[in-house]
Simulated assay, not measured.
Amino acid sequence: MKKVRIGVIGIGAMGSIHAKYLFDGRIPHAELTAVCDSNTERLDWAKQSFGDKVQLFDNSDLFFASKSCDAVMIATRHYDHPILAIQSLKEGCHTLIEKPAGVYTKAVREMNKVAQKSDKVFGIMYNQRTSPLYQKVKDLVESGELGKLKRTIWIITDWYRPQSYYDAGEWRATWRGEGGGVLLNQDPHQLDLWQWICGMPKRVRSFMTFGKYRDIEVEDDVTTFVEYDHGATGLFVTSTGEAPGTNRLEVSGDRGKVVIENDKLTFWRLRVPESEFNREFRGGFGSPECWKCEIPIHGENAQHIGIIKDWINAILNGTELLAPGVEGINGLTISNAMHLSAWTDRWVDIPFDEDLFYKKLKERIDHSTFQKRGGNETLDVSGTY
């Protein structure tokens, strides 16, 4: 079987890891042939790490003009993901982007239009979808084992970040440099998994603070209430300022509830559905018999390597992607709706007013501290996370 020639744009923290996976031969039927970054220090690192076996480029135009790769991984800053993905797809390259899909849905929607017209394989690095824990919860929900959903709660506050983390880069935690805070940097995986498992909410009401715990201009504490079309409700709580933090997903339905916490999946299973018990029970006080079931989890949590292998397999064999790139808009839609709700202090329906969101975001970009330090809204192709 032939090898797919891979190029990586943005070789900062994540991009360099992906490049090393490829260069070290950890991805079957794939080879690293080119990297691109506008940061000369990162290119020096690539030269030392890969020698003359990999071509180096300092801008995306030269990178694509070289025709040195069949497929491209994009690991740059958030604003550039849709821009570079569009360029890659139009250049005829299979494309895999890092999370998030972008900063605002209008740009991501344009990216998706290009992807849907293309015959290339377009994926996104939602590596948490490879987790057998979350795959099992998704199976329990979709199979009906949990019954009709009633409530979903995700408390994800174990993103603790000290001030020194933010001080490490001038672009960090700025509207112009990063486009958001904990929702856009740390939480894209959870927002994706939340909708992947439970479906998209129909409206959100969000409360957030900006620079509550640290000297930053974006959100670092969020509490959001959501409602679903089928009548269920949900809660999403996240922060970068709590220690110790919590990572707990709870999904309740007519047949019980499932909980993921501390890498364990527990199913509190009702012997009969709650609705059936309520309909037939004639006592004053009572509740359905409940069994605590420790659900066995099988399979490898392949993470980033798993997503890359899955992408390569789709390119070579036409298999279905675990994380299609066009689905990146779903979690971002929830994130954008959360921001818009907090900014306007009201409920926001999904789909929401994308023009209003961009207007509100642009106001913050125009007053961003990163702008005063010479930053650009579109941040070239540097991937120096």
Rank of each mutant, 00 (worst) to 15 (best):
S68C: 12
W45K: 07
F64S: 05
V54L: 12
L96T: 02
F57A: 06
V72S: 00
V54W: 09
S60C: 11
H18M: 14
D52T: 15
R109C: 05
Q87W: 07
D52F: 07
N39L: 11
E41A: 12
C36L: 01
P100M: 05
K113W: 02
I86V: 13
K99W: 08
D24V: 10
P28N: 05
L89R: 01
C36R: 04
P100R: 04
Q55H: 14
L89F: 01
A34I: 08
D61K: 15
V72W: 00
T40K: 15
S49L: 12
P28F: 05
L56W: 09
A71C: 05
P82Y: 00
R26Y: 06
A115E: 00
L56Q: 11
S66G: 04
I27G: 03
I83Y: 07
V35D: 00
P28I: 08
A71F: 03
K113A: 07
H94Q: 06
W45F: 13
A34M: 12
G102F: 09
V121F: 01
P82H: 01
Y104T: 12
F57I: 09
Y21W: 12
N112D: 00
K53Y: 07
L89Y: 02
G92E: 08
F57S: 03
H94M: 06
R26K: 14
H18T: 07
F64L: 15
H18A: 07
W45M: 10
K47H: 11
K90Q: 13
V103D: 02
N39K: 13
V103M: 07
H29E: 12
V72Q: 00
S49K: 15
K117V: 00
Q116H: 11
N112A: 00
L43T: 09
N39F: 10
L96E: 04
D119G: 14
S66L: 05
T33L: 10
